Amino acid sequence: MISDGMAGVLRSLRLGWAGDPAQACARALGAEGVALSLPVGAGRTAEPLWCHPELSTRFEELQFTLGEGPGPHAVRTGTPVVEPDLDRVRPERWPALLPAARDMGVHGVCCLPLGIGAIRVGVLTVLCDGDRRLSEQQYADAIALAAALTGAILNGYRRASRSGHDPGPGMFLEWPSGLRRAALHQATGMVSVQLGVSMEEALLRLRAHTYGSERSLGEVVQDVVARRLRFDDDVSGPYSRAGGKG
């Protein structure tokens, strides 16, 4: 049975949301953080839609940049990933993510794939408290939330398909203007043209450069779109118009 707090969240989901959904979900779950990410592109990499608090934002950015971690694994396999203590995870499972996650203070993670059967529409990430595992009540609430979000997203796509509009998540799940989705796609297209590669490979190049430069993906995307950073020179790597390699 779900908690009263989660029941209130699900009622808001049905009626239309007002306020910050991520913060409300984190509060109802009693979790360190909550994030919702939706897959983009053929590679099915999950891009953050909303997150709370800043720690969740940074962790989702890390997973998106690296393309590894519990979230990407849940999207690829369609199965939940519950790791309440990242210190106990084998280093070879997520070699790049684990040390970075520990450095930023992420102790444990529960990732629930959103979808029905082979249809994958996203992933719900819940950050666990460093001193305890998710309780049975928290896990039941997270499962209920994942199911409700799956239904909301699928219904949004169905309505968009019938209306002939570009499909989107729908309801309170519309992409906030502050997120970089449009800019990311524009930057990916620019890198694709510059290098003469597919959009999927261009996104991989963007992510690899972000990780290697120790910058955020948002910063790299802004530089590409503003033409401050180009990827033409595939031998020596991206370079900045301001001088030197990017």
Rank of each mutant, 00 (worst) to 15 (best):
M1T: 11
G8I: 08
S12W: 07
R14T: 15
G16P: 02
D20W: 02
P21N: 12
A22S: 10
Q23T: 12
Q23Y: 09
A28M: 09
A31D: 06
S37K: 02
R44A: 15
T45G: 08
F59C: 01
E61N: 08
G67A: 10
G69R: 04
G69N: 07
A74H: 04
R76P: 00
R76F: 13
G78Y: 02
V81F: 09
L86G: 01
D87L: 03
P95N: 12
A96C: 08
L98C: 03
A100S: 11
A100I: 04
D103W: 14
D103K: 07
G105E: 08
H107V: 15
G108N: 04
L112E: 06
I116T: 10
G117S: 01
V121T: 11
L124Y: 11
V126P: 05
D129R: 09
D131W: 14
R133E: 15
Q137T: 12
Q137A: 12
Q138F: 02
A140H: 06
D141G: 07
A142S: 15
A147T: 09
T150I: 03
I153Y: 11
I153H: 10
N155C: 09
A160M: 04
S161R: 01
G164D: 10
G164V: 03
D166I: 07
P169K: 05
W175N: 03
S177L: 10
G178L: 07
G178S: 14
R180H: 11
A183C: 07
H185M: 11
Q186D: 13
S192F: 06
V193W: 03
V197K: 04
L204N: 13
T210E: 05
R215T: 15
V221S: 04
V225N: 05
V225H: 04
R230D: 12
D233W: 00
G237H: 02
K245I: 12
K245G: 07
